[in-house]
Nucleic acid binder design. Structure first.
Length: 627
DNA sequence: GTCTAATGCGCG
DNA sequence: AAAGCGCGCATTAGAC
């Protein structure tokens, strides 16, 4: 273990890896000494200890969320401050609000907490070691936690402090708070704020994040421009989280009530007819029996042999096998299908309402570097995965009063990026001519008299090739025979040979380096994925570049959300046309001689537009809305 | 009951 | 020769 306390009064001293680290505790707070400490360092490690976070709720924006400790650190000294003490609270605020001050944190958890509790926006004054680590190795599973990173790059002092804290929490948790992870939740909320293990852990967190920064930065020499751009994007994204999206709560509540009723009706119907809940395995057994009696045997099963009840299998029952089944069975299958379809809607609507703060705003977390390709993810709620063809879901979110939402998305950006990277002359010519790319591809493959099915298959072949797919997958998707699929792929390959040559060359590489300088390690067993890494990642960076240009030219405009190849902004109604045009212009560009096109439109007050003839809350089966 | 891995389905 | 890619979350299945 480390040496016993031996520092100044009110301090703990630890010597992990032979370095002396001093932790100043709240009990020993001295305003003048703290001011002198803070003045001596331009970039401070910043960490906060908070009450436990409930992932199902508004997280930082829950009224019950509190910050219990705030820590500032150099590479050798940490000050642990207690915001409940007025003098320490003032010192915290003064330090955080100082416009000349820079901080280093791990993830944006701490800036969000600082905003939620102190109302201070750190904005571009914070650099995130998690983000830098993701640039060094974009694989999420590579261990980007602060503990793993400090153990790898520095020493094990922090992991040991954490182990000690967890042991302390387990030991101190009262009965009833020991099962599962309950001791952890109890610990973050209730472990006494003067507990030595807690204070040492808290102080070391800030010291280690400060020590980690130079260790990681040194390894980024070949792509420091990415550090800058990603930090910019992360700060803008944190601003989106902080501002939040306004939920149309009356609409959402009413819709949930209606859909709940639809779900319950279907459930009750099944229960009344069979005496079995529709969602139970016994329903599956009953249906299995009915199908066997009707001679239907080709439906998918679980590994244990149970009939698989999915929306897909149920749908095929109501279509392909409709005539084989008695009317009462069909009716119950339809009811079960209603349950399957509404349960997804219900789950989404509940997550919207649960994640809203008391003002009716949701604060989605934006992970700006989630995928290996640097694609972003949005969680809490997962707004990128809402069923698009049912506009009732997106309609739950609305612009702030007096504002409208404006959306702009790239047109077929991945095909264009593939053309630009491969410099395939035929694909470049097709794109430059401005005709429909899939029409042109089908025409090149089958002649100008191609039929619709040939267009569909060649379109699938295009995407399959960009993603590294083969004949098997193409046959599976289009229900053509494997031989036909192989022929289609061969034709595609001879139509766009440079694309094929390009992706084959990429497949042999062990490291993919994108035009923006991003490093993506190849998966040795799946070299065919490299082409997709390159294309998807480059498309993402084209979006970042466009957003950067737009936001720099229009710094006051609020970014609202990103959906992979789409940006949504919020603007005052009076500026809508002007900003729609400006956004489209910023996103329209040329990449290596290939035009990258974008289309912007004013969405209006709500994200999703309901069909004019259909009311929102009657629970009609979803249907695509004509463009 | 509790937990995790796999599956299904939503998006691009 | 063959291989689609990248995500999040609810539910299900199976293990403990």
């Amino acid at each position: 273990m480390t040496a016993p306390p031996a520092g100044p009064p009110g301090c703990y001293v630890r010597r992990p890896g032979g370095r002396t680290l001093t932790i100043h505790t709240p009990a020993g707070f001295d305003p003048r000494a703290f001011t002198a400490f803070a003045a001596g360092e331009e970039v401070l490690g910043l960490d906060v200890e908070t009450s436990a976070i409930n992932d199902k709720g508004p997280r930082h924006f829950d009224p019950g969320f509190t910050v219990r400790l705030v820590q500032f650190a150099t590479t050798s000294h940490a000050w642990v401050l207690d915001p409940a003490d007025p003098a320490q609270n003032a010192a915290i605020r003064a330090t955080l609000a100082d416009p000349a001050r820079r901080f280093v944190t791990h993830t944006n958890y701490d800036p969000l907490a600082v905003w939620a509790v102190f109302g201070i926006a750190l904005g571009q004054r914070v650099i995130d070691t998690h983000l830098i680590s993701k640039l060094l190795d974009p694989d999420e599973r590579s261990g980007h936690g602060l503990k793993e990173l400090t153990a790898r790059h520095l020493d094990t002092g922090l992991t040991e402090a954490e182990a000690a804290l967890h042991a302390r929490m387990r030991a101190a948790a009262p009965p009833g708070h020991r099962a599962g992870n309950a001791w952890l939740t109890w610990g973050w909320n209730h472990l006494p704020a003067d507990d030595e293990t807690y204070l040492v852990y808290a102080g070391l967190d800030a010291v280690y994040v400060r020590r980690l920064l130079p260790a990681l930065l040194r390894q980024c020499r070949a792509f420091t421009h990415l550090v800058h751009m990603e930090q910019w994007l992360a700060a803008r994204s944190t601003a989106i989280t902080i501002r939040g999206l306004l939920l149309d709560r009356p609409y959402t509540t009413e819709l949930l009530t209606a859909v709940n009723r639809e779900h319950t009706d279907a459930e009750t119907h099944i229960a009344a007819a069979l005496g079995v809940p529709g969602g139970s395995p016994r329903f599956a057994a009953w249906l299995d029996h009915q199908l066997t009696a009707a001679g239907v045997t080709d439906l998918p099963r679980t590994p244990t042999g149970r009939l698989q009840i999915t929306a897909d299998t149920l749908t095929s029952l109501t279509t392909r096998h409709a005539t084989a089944l008695p009317a009462d069975v069909r009716e119950l299958v339809a009811a079960r299908l209603t349950m399957a379809r509404t349960s997804n809607l219900i789950a989404n609507l509940r997550s919207f309402l649960n994640s809203a703060d008391p003002d009716g705003r949701v604060h989605p977390q934006i992970n700006t570097l989630r995928a290996k390709t640097a694609r972003m993810s949005i969680t809490g709620p997962a707004l990128q995965t809402l069923k698009k063809h049912d506009p009732r879901l997106r309609h739950c979110f609305r612009a702030d009063p007096g504002h409208v939402l404006i959306s702009c998305d790239f047109s077929q950006v991945e095909i264009r990026v593939a053309a630009a990277l491969s410099q395939d002359p035929t694909l470049i010519r097709v794109i430059a001519s401005g005709v429909d790319i899939h029409d042109a591809t089908a025409s090149l493959m089958y002649g100008p008299g191609f039929i619709e099915q040939q267009r569909t298959v060649s379109k699938r072949a295009t995407f399959g090739t960009l993603y590294g797919g083969g004949a098997g997958a193409l046959a599976e998707q289009t229900r053509v025979t494997p031989q036909t699929a192989r022929q289609v792929i061969t034709r595609w390959q001879s139509t766009y040979p440079r694309v094929i040559a390009y992706t084959r060359a990429l497949a042999r590489q062990t490291l993919v380096i994108t035009p923006s300088g991003r490093r993506i390690p190849a998966d040795p067993a799946r070299g065919y994925a490299n082409g997709n890494y390159m294309i998807q990642s480059t498309a993402r960076d084209l979006l970042l570049a466009a957003v950067y240009i737009f936001a720099t030219l229009h710094p006051q405009v609020q970014l609202w959300l990103f959906v992979h190849d789409e940006v949504i902004i919020q603007a005052p109604r009076a500026d809508a046309e002007r900003l729609r045009d400006a956004l489209q212009e910023a996103m329209t560009t040329t990449f290596r001689g290939v035009p990258i096109l974008a289309h912007a439109e004013i969405l209006g007050t709500h994200w999703g537009r309901l069909h004019p003839e259909r009311t929102a809350t009657t629970g009609h089966p979803e249907r695509p809305i004509a463009a």
